[in-house]
Design a protein around this nucleic acid. Sequence first.
RNA 1: GGAGAGCUGGCCGAGUAGGUCGAAGGCGCUCGCCUGCUAAGCGAGUAUACUGGGAAACCGGUAUCGAGGGUUCGAAUCCCUCGCUCUCCGCCA
Length: 422
Amino acid sequence: MLDARYLRENLDTVEARLKSRGEGVNIALFRELDGRRRELLQQSETLKALRNKVTEEISRLKDKSQGDERKLQMREVSQQIKGIDESLKAVEEELQAFLLTVPNIPHPTTPLGKSELDNVVVRTWGDEPELNFAPKPHWEIGEQLGILDFERGAKLAGARFTLYRGAGARLERALINFMLDLHTEQHKYIEMLPPFMVNRECMTGTGQLPKFEEDLFHLEGVDFFLIPTAEVPVTNIHRGEILKGSELPISYVAHTPCFRKEAGSYGKDTRGLIRQHQFNKVELVKFTAPDRSYEELQILLGHAEEVLRRLNIRYRVVELCTGDIGFSSAKTFDIEVWLPGQNCYREISSCSCFEDFQARRAGIRFRPEEKAKPEFVHTLNGSGLAVGRTVVAVLENYQQADGSVLIPEALRPYMGGLERIS
RNA sequence: GGAGAGCUGGCCGAGUAGGUCGAAGGCGCUCGCCUGCUAAGCGAGUAUACUGGGAAACCGGUAUCGAGGGUUCGAAUCCCUCGCUCUCCGCCA
């Protein structure tokens, strides 16, 4: 959410910069609501000041009957206040509803562009595997090895659900443990295991609501949502809190399943593990002081990249353009992993700086100094990594001519020493 | 699911025959004094948001005692609804 006061004072700039996302802002609506709000607020507060004053006078009267006349007047005033406050509440709700649908302002360095076609490749790491045969897509490898069962996954739940079997299930679990150990032991993140369903406040805090409700699974009977990413519960850990400046940056890592309806992506990536309704992800989340956030973004990105380096899988880092960054993001780098079976790069991580956008929605602040005024923190997060897609990358990059798959060395300790799935 | 207790400032904790309570007191913290150092001691200060004025320092107003509503001239204090925490019983992984 943008700061109403900032918006009031910088309407034109904000409008121009949101335009680069391909988003229009209803400036006239904002002006009107904001103006009406302040007008009503002043009316209400003036009357309340009067009432408080008279009320205090009444309380000081020794002869109680003397106050009767003023009580009658104040009854009138209270009625007026009530009426004004009702209008005020309505206006504030409208204003809030409006502000919650305005996306974040892209960082000035975020490349201008309309779609993913305008994203910028920042760097590429690693080599393509030398495969002197026609590489297969992971769904063929997985089915032939009997470690991925798409048909039975569909039987259990439906399309976009997969049953992992044997070494496949183990591989998923190995990757989760490998990533968590890397981030906690080497990168010094604190491991968290949050609830997998959250309330509406959390979803609003990180920006999924109110605009993207159709992408979320909602439970029947209770107002809970299944989390689409650990970003939601983990960022909301500090919702409504004032942190100490000295404890920043705070770095959390969490593995959770993620649940997404994938509405609007019918027919896309229908084969294999790429686009599932449920998938595992290891997520990195940081809370930082505003002046450190972009440094921390580079660090966080590096931590996510490190997973693929250790697995020795080729990837590239892409900087998303203004037209492609997410609703809450000011700047985003995607990590795209090379998939020989599909002869393309696929997103495996998305690392973003949200500046104070989520912090303002969720009320996450810090005191720079012991007695200083609280300021909003900056929040960041990135996948470190999407586990299902990492399985895809391992299967496709480590496949052998005979249909077996080598286990990357870094993973072998997590696979009970297994060197090859065959 | 049943019965009960509770939710006050960074923390602990007063405060119900409604009035001067943003809220005693303590701890913590900050600054100053004192003191070879530290500790102890002494003094002062120590919430947040919105809003008006001001270049600013700052000054004023309003709101906030889990959340929302009600009664009242006036509510931390009374009434209602909801949330959360805790204890006991039942059920269950």
